[in-house]
């Protein structure tokens, strides 16, 4: 029905998939303020390309692939560079983060939440882009491994291996900072 161009049907498609598209765009870009604009661009492109959809894959898979391509085009056009902070995370900041991560519970006080959030954002920024995107999409935005494989044109096993290695890299970086402070490792290994 949507492929015959009826606007009402397409509007319904937009409503059904808009949240997921927002989540994917948000996970891939680093600027929340551009999410809505890029998401609009995605659906515009989908509408204009409906004739090319051959229905071999699920519509959502096709939609998410267009979303990823639009995000990459956006990042290329904007020439987004990694955020450069004036200084690295301080040892005190890492220790605070460690305390919350060990407990598995985020801080409750608003000022502590704001500070911890800032620390986490800076820590994620230091990861290679692909690691950051995979971890954020999986752990923050809730995409499944299968969805990530479909979206990123990867084999499911490849996604699992990349996720596993990205986890190792973030912890390696985290422990290096903790270790250099002489502080104990709060996020302990549990055997």
């Amino acid at each position: 029905m949507a492929q015959s161009g009826t606007e009402a049907a397409f509007e319904e498609l937009v409503r059904r998939h808009q949240q997921r598209v927002f989540a994917l765009v948000s996970g891939l870009l680093r600027r929340q303020e551009d999410v809505e604009d890029v998401a609009q661009q995605v659906f515009l492109k989908v509408y204009l390309s409906l004739r090319k959809f051959d229905q071999r894959a699920a519509f959502s898979t096709w939609l998410y692939r267009i979303t990823v391509n639009e995000c990459w085009d956006y990042l290329r056009k904007k020439k987004v560079r990694p955020l450069v902070y004036e200084s690295d995370l301080s040892l005190e900041q890492i220790s605070k983060l460690d305390a919350f991560a060990s407990s598995g519970r985020p801080p409750e006080a608003p000022n502590q939440r704001a500070e911890t959030k800032q620390i986490l954002e800076r820590m994620l920024e230091k990861l290679p882009e692909q690691d950051r995107q995979l971890l954020v999409l999986k752990e923050v935005e809730g995409f499944s491994v299968q969805e990530l494989a479909n979206i990123l044109h990867l084999n499911v096993n490849t996604v699992k291996v990349r996720l596993f290695r990205a986890r190792g890299r973030i912890m390696e970086s985290y422990r290096r900072r903790l270790g250099s402070s002489g502080a104990g490792v709060g996020v302990e290994r549990k055997v």
């Binding site: 949240q19 927002f22 948000s26 929340q32 983060l97 598995g104 985020p106 959030k117 986490l120 190792g168």
Partner: peptide
Amino acid sequence: DDAAASVRLLRVAGSLLDSAPAP
């Protein structure tokens, strides 16, 4: 063990970081 620790760390992140704005 590192991977399990990362889950705990990112769980804290998930509750604090700006997840996607709602349309």
